[in-house]
Computed example of a mutant assay.
Amino acid sequence: MEKVNFAEDAITSFEELRDIIGVPHELVIKKTISMMEDQCKNFISNSPLLFLSTS
């Protein structure tokens, strides 16, 4: 297994990241909600880990 040199292989700009993963689909960009419904609350309450992002 090859060792990873994080200092040399780090992604340091938005452009580098876009070159690697591309541009997200329009549906992904627009995938937001203003409030959580019962289905969302139930799903989160049963999940062992949650990542929340706000802007």
Results as ranks from 00 to 15, higher is better:
V28N: 12
T54I: 08
F43R: 07
S13M: 00
K31P: 07
S45K: 12
E8Y: 00
K31I: 11
C40Y: 10
S55G: 11
S53E: 14
S55N: 15
V4L: 10
L52C: 05
E26C: 01
K41W: 09
L49E: 13
F43T: 03
A7R: 05
M35Q: 11
A7K: 14
I21D: 01
F14K: 10
D38C: 02
F6I: 07
E15Y: 00
P24M: 00
D9F: 09
T54A: 08
D9L: 09
P48V: 02
L49Q: 11
A7V: 09
N46E: 04
L52F: 07
T12A: 10
C40V: 08
T54E: 05
K31N: 15
N5W: 00
K31T: 10
A10T: 09
L17F: 15
N46C: 04
F43A: 11
K31Y: 15
I11N: 01
V23A: 13
E16D: 07
L50N: 09
K30H: 07
F43Q: 12
V28S: 09
I21R: 02
F51P: 00
K3V: 03
L27I: 11
K30E: 05
M36N: 06
G22K: 01
K30C: 03
A7L: 08
E8L: 02
E37T: 07
S13A: 01
K31H: 11
S47R: 03
T12E: 02
I20E: 01
